[in-house]
Structures are given as structure tokens and as C-alpha cells.
């Protein structure tokens, strides 16, 4: 069973925003949705490896800052070209103001 890793605190990410998180030589994107939930996906866009932390969160979509490809960050599903390959997603839970991720 993979451990839960303390990635950040809930106050570190504004609502409807995204933050970069690096762990174990890998890079991830953490999201704070407009309805207060937290999510985690791979950090790099599956189109051309640009980090999604510089992108824009619109409702439950993350838009890549380079080519405007979009993903649903809850499921990782690619929603708009040039993004065609889905992102990997990772389980997230919140405990006492701490955002914990299982990677």
C-alpha cells in the first residue's frame, strides 16, 4: 500500500487554482476546485510536456499554458485538442488542513 504524502496545506492553493508539487523525482499538479475539493494529476501536459501549474483552472478543467489544451483534472480526461492523451490522476484526501496525496 502506497503511503499518503503531505503535499501542501489547504491554504496554499486558492480556490479554482493549481499549484506545482515535486516529489520523488517526479512533478505533479495539485488543484483546488471551485467547490472546495482537492485533486492531483501528473504535472506535465501530455501534449508537449509543459507544466500545467502555469495554466488556468476553469471550473473543473485545467488549461495548458502553452497550447490551450484542456483536461478534466478530476479524471485526467483530455477535453480539448491539442491534448489527446489523458493525464494520470492520484488519490487525494484532506486531513486537518493538510492535503495528502497517494503517489
Amino acid at each position: 500500500m502506497t503511503d499518503w504524502i503531505h503535499a501542501c496545506d489547504t491554504s496554499d492553493i486558492d480556490e479554482e487554482d493549481v499549484m506545482r508539487w515535486d516529489h520523488g523525482g517526479r512533478t505533479f499538479a495539485l488543484y483546488h476546485s471551485p467547490d472546495g475539493e482537492f485533486f492531483c494529476t501528473d504535472g506535465l501536459c501530455s501534449h508537449e510536456q509543459v507544466h500545467l501549474a502555469g495554466g488556468l483552472v476553469i471550473d473543473h478543467l485545467i488549461e495548458c499554458p502553452k497550447h490551450n489544451g484542456q483536461f478534466d483534472y478530476r479524471t485526467g480526461e483530455a477535453k480539448r485538442a491539442p491534448a489527446c492523451v489523458n493525464l494520470a490522476t492520484y488519490p487525494v484526501k484532506v486531513d486537518a488542513g493538510r492535503v495528502l496525496v497517494q503517489v
Partner: peptide, 10 residues
């Protein structure tokens, strides 16, 4: 052209 323009930005 959606893809050609993506390449133009890359």
C-alpha cells in the same frame, strides 16, 4: 490548422 498553429507556438 489547429495543429499547425500549435506547432507555430511550439
Amino acid at each position: 490548422w489547429r495543429w499547425s498553429h500549435a506547432r507555430h507556438h511550439t
